[in-house]
Design a binder for these strands. Sequence first.
DNA 1: CTGAAAGCGCTAACAC
DNA 2: GTGTTAGCGCTTTCAG
Lengths: 348, 348
Amino acid sequence: MHLKSGRATIKEVASAAGVSTQTVSRVINDRPDVSPETRKRVQEIIDNLGYQPNALARSLIRQRSYTFGVVTAGLKYIGPSRTLSGITSAVEEAGYSLLLKELPQFNANNVAPTFQTFLSRRVDGIIWAVPEVGDNRTWVNQLTLDLDIPIVYLAMKSQENICVVSINNYLGGQLAMSHLFEQGYRHIGHISGPLDWWEARERMAAWRDMLTEANIEFKDEHWVEGNWSSASGLQAIEKLLKDYPEMDAVFVSNDQMALSVLQYACRNNLRIPDDLGVVGFDDIPESAFFWPPLSTVQQDLFSVGEAAVEEIIKIIGPGKHDRDSVRPKSIMLAPTLVVRKSSLKNKG
Amino acid sequence: MHLKSGRATIKEVASAAGVSTQTVSRVINDRPDVSPETRKRVQEIIDNLGYQPNALARSLIRQRSYTFGVVTAGLKYIGPSRTLSGITSAVEEAGYSLLLKELPQFNANNVAPTFQTFLSRRVDGIIWAVPEVGDNRTWVNQLTLDLDIPIVYLAMKSQENICVVSINNYLGGQLAMSHLFEQGYRHIGHISGPLDWWEARERMAAWRDMLTEANIEFKDEHWVEGNWSSASGLQAIEKLLKDYPEMDAVFVSNDQMALSVLQYACRNNLRIPDDLGVVGFDDIPESAFFWPPLSTVQQDLFSVGEAAVEEIIKIIGPGKHDRDSVRPKSIMLAPTLVVRKSSLKNKG
DNA sequence: CTGAAAGCGCTAACAC
DNA sequence: GTGTTAGCGCTTTCAG
């Protein structure tokens, strides 16, 4: 079967079937008030012609486009694309279409045109799937304050009166730290992500708070700021081992940096997990195949994307969007800890 | 500055400015035939009201939506999302919008609805960014044979009369093999990707052809089919080492599987690159931080995405699309070899 | 059950 | 330079 050009109009169908355009409209919208015979005849013409209603015309009159706009950034990283994947899946499921914009950087000081485009295309809702970095969220907040369509924000600190869907990064850090404590590690260092990222700050805060709770002294020499890259991880572990020689474990803010720790250990006869326990964050697919396999905090970003779409659909509801009818609520999804060999001091 | 609701109409602007809608239309479309004073007055009203032309209405009458549809699959993998990133970038640059669909799998036996959606939204062109796997390309070909909008295909075997943009995977394999030969390796095994993937077949064909050209005997025990995952890479290398004990190097069809080779070597006192040379494919960011750093074939998938958009815009041209005006041409981008330690037998 | 008329927001073609 | 008319393809009244 070939696709027909898709350019037939409702008028052509109507005249071919010998009915009015309204009747055709009723058929394609599954309205009850059409006689079975008429419906059948019209449907046949539709199938023959390969007629597809023009969604543009439909959106124009219905004042609803059945389209969402999504803003993302850094698709080349695993996180944003996972999230996007969850969004596409849920959007498809709901019968909506998706308009995609990717920011060239994570900052948001020039996104007005992006929103304008979405508005001019009359999207029914917007998903802001850009991680909170620096002050980008301030910009967006200002810009979207009195938008009359719903907007859901991803991967940022939750906030009154707006709908935010995030992973609980703080909890992730706690999971990593409790596990290391349980394994008997006490001198736990930290390699953080870039601290203009909210996610990095949360993970680090958990590390610090857990140390404090355990009455373990914490010093500035016990942590180093990385930039998510393996290269920065390498520099970080070298510095840590020098400045914090008693360190017996390290909580690393993502798996790519943790990889560098493992590799450094491998080259320098540092035994993992015996001399140094390591826990990462993200659970990238390779981490199970690092040597030793990496313990890490798994975050289900696909679900974050799905949840965002579900929320926005809930807000829109079956009818038109009523700004005040739905209390915007924030959602925090819990990450889980994946324990592998890199942190298992007590084997058996 | 806040975004206005964006719901003002051209009519409201017109009456506020005391002109006809036509004049407003001329102003927003930068037509010359408006007096400077009128233009200025209208522009002010537009700015005040935060008026944004309704792109839906505009598309309806212009018969052109300035929107492309892109079909992708497997966004959670690095390749497809890189490609998508190149697409979003070039689309943005060109002032177009992008409608995104992600297939739940790589097969294409149920994509008619996807195309229908695009057609009903009157996209100006379609980018099929799904790698050629199994017979998915046959399905798509059938479906799109007499579409009256241009379509560009990515990551598949080039073909007469359709526009395909791909990486030259065969060349990539050749680069890897020549390099290994130059380093003095002779008994070169291969871990392929799943052979229903065109890319995997190309890489493997290069491996076989290069062996043949070098007059090196090639047997079925010299290669194993993997499925791109690190897990499959591990099984593959174990089997290869058993069945092909003379093997002194291995060309692996992606970096994730190559990682397993490195890890296996690390655990089994197999020295890389001395006992075994390894070259991967993809150049994922981590590969420079594997141990030893992995030699690999780098493919610029971002550029593939960009090139696809450029082609489609060329086909559409400034006016309406004329199916016969442009000869569809295929583009093959050359990958490059990144040499690192895992294949450097002759150090210095 | 079915059709005629009106109009969503915009622009092309023509008047003046 | 500017306004008027018509119409893109559809759906929503409201008659019959």
